[in-house]
Design a protein around this nucleic acid. Structure first.
Length: 598
RNA sequence: GGGGGCGUAGCUCAAUUGGUUAGAGUACCGGAUUGUCGAUCCGGUGGUUGCGGGUUCGAGCCCCGUCGCCCUCGCCA
């Protein structure tokens, strides 16, 4: 790493360099001034090295060191010397040596900092984001960016070796209906027209298969104008893959290889392949969600058969009218207080559950709690058997529509798993969720919408029911789930014009609209489209999990806030009237007022 | 759009039931200090309590509005 300004980095000197004359440059990490001797820890990306300024060695250098403050950029020249006995710092990789400085130069001064540049930073995230370049000087953030780089490099290596071609696709494309809200870019050259920023390279990668590229990948930036979360940014990165002449197993095999290589590279750990598989129906039944966290058990149990025979009206009626009655066993939950259970009820209520029924298993095996009396002894035994419940356990039940039961218990399960410390944090549990429904009924528009996207191939076994029983048709779609997080998803695509036309028809996309919005795809399908499929993995989420960070923002150099703002640059910002005129745009009054109010 | 948390010195936080001049650590400034590594010791500067309004003899604290950050539901094919 030798450059004009340095002979070595701040991380590489050791006893092996003893006696060597070196030149280092970096940031002043800290200064310890003893009146005579001054110690300065010099920091760069590679590490920290202690530099010693002794007035007896160089009066000028020492005088300069008195002026050096935190985060000054300085250059020093001196000799690598083993530290005196007792002064060795075993906590530092370079702790056995120090540089005795005989000449120094201040390359850049620094104002006092808004927050300390240290590994454990307790500054608020808004301050960190405003001064992101300072935040990124912290070793932890540097580790994150380096790990992200390693992850991307590993993905490229694995896919390159497997014959994939990296192709760039447009970020500025045409708006297509369905899916996420798009960011729009006004066209200066075509008044009144707009590009849409790509929410994914979906159609382009399919067209690359039709072009005969055979195997494509891209580290692709995607844009979605939806509300943000700890795991969602308006622009994010996907590892996007598409392959021709493949079935699900081919795509999964490549994905597993790439992901396993990444885990090995970053954490040095082996991930067993192939990953576990479960169907959407199994996931919903056992875990209540389509992205199960399989690091712990506590599966959802069905007690409809007991509910029907009970005297508890809420249960009986729910079980009778096609609803579900299901529950969770909380091991040792008998110790929970009324207040704790009330909190769980409120939590489940957030997912639509109107109540949370519970019973405790007492030491003698009897059930206690407000609803216990509605169950005769045989039903009480049946309840316990359903969960293999032992004395000391708590059983929680939700009786409601299937979607409410699944959502409330599924989320409650994860909530409890964390609260009770049942989740082995270090564990990495990958799994595939398959056999998703092709379509979902949207109550708002009273139409079927594609669960994955409109180009997903129906399962051939269900194809004859596409028009008659659309909700029962399975898709050739699959999601990759890691520790309860949806890492990504993909599908085998429709490659036949007739099937694609039927799909649009079921979605209520008329021939005219399909022709207008997707004519290029429909035409391409006519010119020899090979069977193909692929997947897209959320890079930011994978990085976050492997780094064990709480937010994907900590793996992104310059992320945006929950309101979609960049606190450093101030984006989105205003533009002047001339720019708007060039774009043939006039702001609506409420937009102008809203701006004035700030 | 809904729910929740937070907002006090550059930074992280405290401030009894609404009651005297809003404190501490850190950073910063000055001084002392020749083996520290979160250096230490002495002294000092630093406040529109996010903003606006209200209630009150009196508001950091209560009320209304508003802005910002975070979490979350909806949303994210």
């Amino acid at each position: 790493m030798k450059t004009t300004y340095r002979t070595h980095t701040c991380g590489e000197l050791s006893k092996a360099h003893e006696g060597l004359a070196v030149r280092l440059a970096g940031w002043v990490n800290s200064r310890r001034d003893h009146g005579g001797v001054i110690f300065i820890d010099l920091r760069d990306r590679y590490g920290r090295t202690q530099c010693v300024f002794n007035p007896e060695r160089s009066r000028e250098a020492h005088a300069l060191a008195e002026k050096m403050h935190a985060q000054y950029v300085v250059q020093v020249e001196g000799a690598v010397v083993p530290r005196p006995p007792g002064a060795v710092n075993p906590k530092m990789p370079t702790g056995e040596i120090e540089v005795h400085v005989k000449a120094a130069e201040i390359l850049a001064a620094s104002d006092p900092l808004p927050f300390e540049v240290a590994d454990e930073c307790d500054a608020g995230e808004d301050v960190r984001l405003k001064y992101r370049y300072l935040d990124l000087r912290r070793p932890r953030m540097q580790r994150n960016l380096l790990a992200r780089h390693l992850i991307v490099r590993t993905m490229r290596r694995v896919l390159d070796e497997a014959g994939f071609v990296e192709v760039e696709t447009p970020a500025m494309t045409r708006y297509t209906p369905g899916g996420a809200r798009n960011f729009l870019v006004p066209s200066r050259l075509s008044p009144g027209r707009f590009y849409a920023l790509a929410e994914s390279p979906q159609l382009f990668k399919q067209l690359l298969m039709m072009a005969g590229l055979d195997r494509y990948y891209q580290i692709a930036r995607c844009f979605r104008d939806e509300d943000l979360r700890a795991d969602r940014q308006p622009e994010f990165t996907q590892l996007d893959i598409e392959m021709a002449l493949v079935s699900e197993a081919d795509v999964m095999a490549v994905t597993e290889k790439a992901v396993a290589a990444v885990v090995e590279a970053v954490l040095g750990r082996q991930v067993p392949t192939p990953f576990a598989h479960l169907t959407f129906a199994e996931a919903m039944r056992d875990y209540g969600v389509d992205k199960p966290d399989r690091r712990f058990g506590m599966r959802i149990g069905d007690v409809a058969h007991v509910a029907r025979r009970s005297d508890f009206r809420v249960f009986r009626e729910a079980a009778g009218r096609g609803g579900h009655v299901r529950g969770l066993k909380v091991p040792g939950g008998q110790a929970m207080t009324r207040k704790e259970i009330d909190d769980l009820t409120a939590y489940a209520g957030g997912f639509g559950a109107k109540g949370l029924a519970w019973v405790k298993v007492e030491a003698d095996g009897s059930l206690s709690g407000a609803i216990a009396k509605f169950f005769k002894p045989p039903e009480q035994s049946a309840l316990k058997e359903s969960f293999a419940a032992q004395p000391g356990d708590l059983l929680l039940f939700v009786a409601d529509e299937p979607t409410v039961v699944a959502a409330s218990l599924g989320n409650l399960r994860v909530h409890l798993g964390r609260k009770l410390g049942l989740v082995p944090q270090e564990d990495l549990q990958f799994c595939w969720v398959t056999d998703f429904p092709l379509l979902e009924y949207d109550l708002e528009t009273k139409k079927y919408v594609a669960m994955h996207h409109p180009f997903t191939s129906p399962n051939p076994a269900d194809l004859d029911r596409l028009e008659t029983e659309p909700a029962s048709v399975r898709a050739r779609a699959y999601d990759l789930v890691l520790n309860g997080v949806e890492l990504g998803g993909g599908s085998i695509r429709i490659h036949r014009t007739d099937v694609q036309a039927r799909m649009f028809n079921v979605l209520g996309i008329g021939r005219e609209e399909a022709e207008e919005k997707f004519s290029f795809l429909l035409e391409a399908l006519k010119f020899g489209a090979p069977p193909h499929g692929g997947i897209a993995l959320g890079l930011d989420r994978l990085v976050r999990i492997l780094l064990d960070e709480q937010s994907i923002r900590d793996g992104i150099a310059f992320p945006k806030t929950q309101r979609g703002q960049d606190l450093m640059t101030g984006a989105p910002g205003t533009v002047d009237e001339k720019q708007l005129r060039d774009l043939h745009i006039r702001l609506r009054p409420e937009a102008i007022e809203g701006e004035a109010g700030k």
